[in-house]
Amino acid sequence: MKGVLFLPRTIFIGGAITALFLLAALLSFIWTPHDVTGVAIAQKLRPPFGDFILGTDHFGRDLLSMVMVGARVSLAVALVAVGIGMGLGVPLGLAAAARPNAWWSDAIMRLNDLIFAFPALVIAILITASFGASALNAIIAIGIFNIPVFARLSRGAALALWQREFILSARVCGKSDLRISAEHILPNIANILIVQGTIQFSLGILAEAGLSYVGLGAQPPLPSWGRMLADAQTMVSFAPHLALVPGLAIVLAVLGLNLLGDGLRDVMDPRLKERQA
């Protein structure tokens, strides 16, 4: 086993940033520096680094507190969307790979192609038009978009594995396709699924911010990073910190997850491993 010290630095940096945001989001449930619901016009539009570390918005709300509460929405939406994508996409991909000649295998992949034609924004527009805007829409829209990503990835990797001789050996021993998928295929593609999971997590944060920004995601009074940016837009010329703070929060969160994903890939990439062996 490799010592912890030899792990890529990106894992530590990315992991620390990600953990910071997760903790901030959790902490916001029990404590924030200031109240985010109350309006205090007297202290509106304070610049950062004064009484309020990140300044206040046009209602006098503390931006740091809002970023903390906003992290809840962003992280929860993106995380649940990854769960939807993995939970549905991976079994579909594994099934399609186990029986590549079955008619439904083809149907699964066609369905995937079809979903790819609907960017998350388009799905969100459709759902919002029918059912009204909410954070749940964002979860569903991004989650649906994640399904074909994981289905294609797991199918491709599984197809390559099914040709490997250790799978043929397992079949000779009479193991069922389901059992082989669970016992041999899934553990061997878990690496790339985890790496892709962190990437989709970060993409989900970006997508949620975009949806909230145009009003298709989380609704007031729930603060979210995208909505904070939308509110900031008209005031950006005289209070740039309103745009900078939530924007930097998004960049930092996404950057952290991407670094974590890169680091994990460096550690787990089977190609790198075989080169070392």
């Binding site: 490997r164 001789e165 050996s169 397992a170 021993c173 553990p187 061997n188």
Partner: peptide, 23 residues
């Protein structure tokens, strides 16, 4: 099989690899 590298699940120990035919 031919390929001494592809014939085994790299994540299992030899005991489990050899025991597989018991299935």
């Amino acid at each position: 099989f031919q390929d001494p590298f592809g014939s085994f699940n790299p994540r299992h120990k030899v005991q489990r690899l050899i025991a597989e035919p018991l299935h």
